[in-house]
């Protein structure tokens, strides 16, 4: 039962990811990404990481992707938006870069299979355990991330400011 559910959800995630890459229409691509994020959230939920699952839906699907779709709707109104890409040659890099990433993923997955002792400490997916780790063991990177986000926000404000 749980296995069957996993394969159904995983298939949805893969199809949605393919849809994101293959659709020419930017809005369709963005909506496929929303479906993909939702499917990944379902996988988190089935693994017992409830907080992660719903935080992913709220933050990525519910907020960030809404802004993406909003921006695409404002900037690219029609279906005939995509002219010839000026940096078409760059696409040749996609294949080796993708292959490299795939190899890396294989190594990571094989390493993780080795045993529970490797990698991050294993805790439950509850809010308390995540909060405990974030505010004790990983406090410094956590605070550093917030500074990074602040810097990005200030940069965006600077870019958006009208030239006087």
């Amino acid at each position: 039962m749980a296995h069957a559910a996993f394969f159904v959800v995983a298939a949805i995630a893969v199809v949605a990811a393919l849809g994101l890459v293959l659709r020419r229409n930017a809005i369709h691509g963005a909506l496929f990404l929303v479906v993909n994020l939702g499917a990944i959230a379902v996988l988190y939920q089935t693994l017992g990481a409830e907080f992660l699952a719903w935080a992913q839906v709220i933050v990525y699907a519910g907020a960030i992707m809404v802004l993406f779709v909003f921006a695409i709707m404002v900037l690219i109104p029609g279906k005939e938006e995509t002219g010839p890409d000026p940096r078409r040659a760059w696409r040749l890099l996609a294949l080796p870069a993708g292959a490299l990433l795939f190899l890396q993923l294989i190594f990571v997955v094989r390493g993780a299979r080795g045993g529970a002792g490797s990698g991050a400490p294993s805790v439950g997916g509850g809010v308390e355990s995540i909060a405990g780790l974030l505010f004790t063991r990983y406090l410094f990177p956590f605070e550093l991330t917030s500074v990074l986000l602040l810097a990005a926000m200030v940069g965006a404000l600077l870019l958006a400011r009208r030239r006087v």
């Binding site: 699907a61 809404v66 909003f70």
Partner: peptide, 11 residues
């Protein structure tokens, strides 16, 4: 989360 997904229908 469900409330925030509702906006997709409208968009």
């Amino acid at each position: 989360a469900m409330l925030s997904l509702g906006v997709y229908g409208v968009m």
